[in-house]
Each structure stands twice: as C-alpha cells, then as structure tokens.
Simulated assay, not measured.
Amino acid sequence: MKETSYWSRNFILILIGNALLFMVYNMQVPVLPLFGKKLGLTPAQIGIFVGAIMFAALLTRLFVPWFSGKFSKKVLLVVGILLYLLASVGYPLLGSFGLLVLLRLFNGLGHGITTTYFATSAAAELPANKIGEGMGYFGIGTMVTASLAPLLALAIVQQFSFTAFFLSCIGILFAAMLAILGTSQPKQPVIHTAKKAAIFDRQFIPQCSLVFILGVLMSGVMTFTPIYAQLKHLTAISWFFFVAAVAGVVIRPIVGRSFDQRGPRLVLLISTVLLTVGMVMIAFIDRNWLLVVAGIFYGVADGAIYPTLQAWVFKVTSVENRDTATGMFLNSYDLGMGLGAVVLGALVEDIQYQGMFLVLAVVGLIYIGLSLGLSRRWLA
C-alpha cells in the first residue's frame, strides 16, 4: 500500500504538467539554434541567446526560500508557466538579438520557478524509501514527451513555419496550465524560514559539482549538434533526439531501483563512460546511422546521470529543506548549461564544431574519475 501510494491524482497531474512543460523546452532545443541562424546570429550570439535562460533560472532560484514562505507551490507553478507563455508569444514577433535575449531571460524566470517546484511537488508525494524509483517515474513523463518533441518541432518548422512552431508551444503550455490548476494543495506543516537550509550548503557540493559539469556537456550537445549535423548534410537530427529520449525512458526505472538498492556509484560509472563515448561519436559523425547510435549513448547517459544525482540530493536532505536543496542543485545544472552554451559557442569560432566536441569528450573522461571519487566519499 505504502509503495504505490504516490500514484495519487496530484502526483499524476504534476507529472503531466511537468512533462508538457518539458515538451516545450525540448521542442525549443533543436529549433531555437536554427531560428537564431535563420535570423543571422553568429555561433557566439546563438550561445548567448540559448544560454540566457539558464542564467535567469539561476538567479530566480536564489529567492526560493522567500517564494516558499509567501506562496503555495501551485501559485508559483502557474506564474512560471505564464512566464514561459510570454516568451513563446514574443519569440516570433521580435527579431533583434537584444530583444530575443530579453525574452529568453523571461523564459528563464519561468524555467527556474517551474523546474524547482515541479520537482519538489512530486517529491512531496513520495515515501522516503521510494524516492529513487518515484523520481525515476516522474522523469519518464519528461522523457516520453521529450522523445516526441524534436520530431514534432522540426516537422512543424519544415512543413509550416517558425511561427506555427511557436503557436504549438503556446497550446502545449496552456495544457500544462490546466494540469496544474487541477491539483489540490496538500496540507503541509508550517516551516519557519529561519530553520531552512541556506542557499549554499556544502553538504550538496558533490552532487552540484557533478550536475554542473553535466550541464556543460549537455549544453554542447543540445545547442550545437543540430547545426553541426546540418553542416555535415545529415538529416537524422530529429531521430538523434528521439532515440535519446526513448533510451532515457527505458533506463530510468532501472536506474531508480539501482539507486534505491546500491546508491549512486555504479550508475554514475556506467553512464559517464557511455556519455564520453557518445561525445566522441558526435565529433566524428559522417553518417545518419552514426548520429542515431550516438543519440542512444547520449540518451542512456542523460537518462541515468541527472535523476540519480537529483535522487541523491533528496536522499540526504530533510523534507523541510527540499526547496532550497533543489534550488541549489538546479542552479548548478543551469549554470553549467548557461556557461556551457556561451563558452562553447565562442570556442566553436576558434576550433570549429568537431574540435569543440572533442574538448567535451576530454571533459567526459575527467568526469568519469570525478564521479567515482565523489560517489565513493559521499555515498548516500
């Protein structure tokens, strides 16, 4: 009974709302770089445009303790989705680099709020001994929609227009809003802000360090693989993201159970090796089938590392400190994503796309050793 109690109406609606929001996010992953390229932006400008969302999300999460003390999670999720909507309406209407970055910052405010409170709202529905498995299933909702997102997004752009794409994003965001409006606010004990964890807590340095580097690696793949594949005259980029998402869906329940039983070390070892192999494969892609295979490696790694690190954070923090712990964790990831997009965009202008992906492969090798060292020392 206890083991399945988290499959409540609230948990399901939160899962659906989160999945739909991330569908929009993952639809934008392959399209926004192409949208920026169409507008004439340079690789460095595309990196700033795409990465700006992460910096805004990071700053937003610094106010998580204040938000939690003033508003319910439901209200905060509604506000976050509205900010996402504002950005999606503005993208096709504003064509200058400065205004696009400004809109991306608004998008980032919404991203910071929603990613924090979707995760903590879901975790609040889970029993302590099923955090890994429960968050794994929660992540499956994200991965299922992510598997459809690139195919849908690129098909809309190719068959219709960028405007039609943004209208589709708006419709999906309205559906996410309806899911959240359908949830009920659970009764929670009053938590005094003074007793909450600080914005920075050294307890979470291992997980946050690892997720920061993961963000750098992911930003390189998500931002520049579509353009690199286009330059290589490859047509399977949508299938790259599709198989990556499917691989992530398949691996997450396995990863969740492994974490609950053995902790993070084994999962991190296998997945970081696969991630490094995927980076090398992307650097040398010259065939569509190779791009698809690289997507499998990337998808398994992404589907394993992130939820393992997130479950690890939930495992070592108290229930009342989850909001602030989640904010620190997500800020580390978004800082990696944001800095990665900007720095790697500048790097591309010096060493080209293949050189940039080879640099990421070297970072992946370092990541293997770092993952093993930190998970051994700080094993949950």
Rank of each mutant, 00 (worst) to 15 (best):
Q45N: 06
V343C: 13
Y6L: 06
Y137P: 03
A155V: 11
L154G: 08
E320Q: 14
I213W: 00
L152F: 05
Y367W: 06
T145F: 10
A164P: 04
V211R: 00
F174I: 15
L231A: 11
A245N: 00
P253G: 03
V342L: 12
Q203T: 15
M218W: 11
P92G: 08
N288K: 10
S184L: 10
G263S: 12
I254S: 05
Q207M: 12
D334I: 03
Q230A: 15
A153Y: 01
T272D: 04
S168K: 08
V342F: 13
L86K: 09
M337R: 06
G369L: 08
P65H: 03
F212E: 00
Y25V: 15
G340K: 05
M337D: 07
F284E: 12
G95N: 15
V348P: 10
M337E: 08
F118G: 04
N26D: 10
L86M: 14
Y367M: 00
A380D: 12
I48F: 13
A346N: 14
V300I: 15
M356R: 04
T183D: 06
C208P: 02
I296G: 08
T223H: 02
F174W: 11
L21M: 15
T317W: 04
I46V: 14
S332I: 00
T4Q: 11
F160Y: 15
D201W: 02
I81R: 07
V243K: 03
V293D: 01
V359Q: 06
Y333N: 08
S8P: 04
L335M: 10
G90F: 12
M54C: 13
G141Y: 02
L379Y: 12
F241T: 05
S184Q: 11
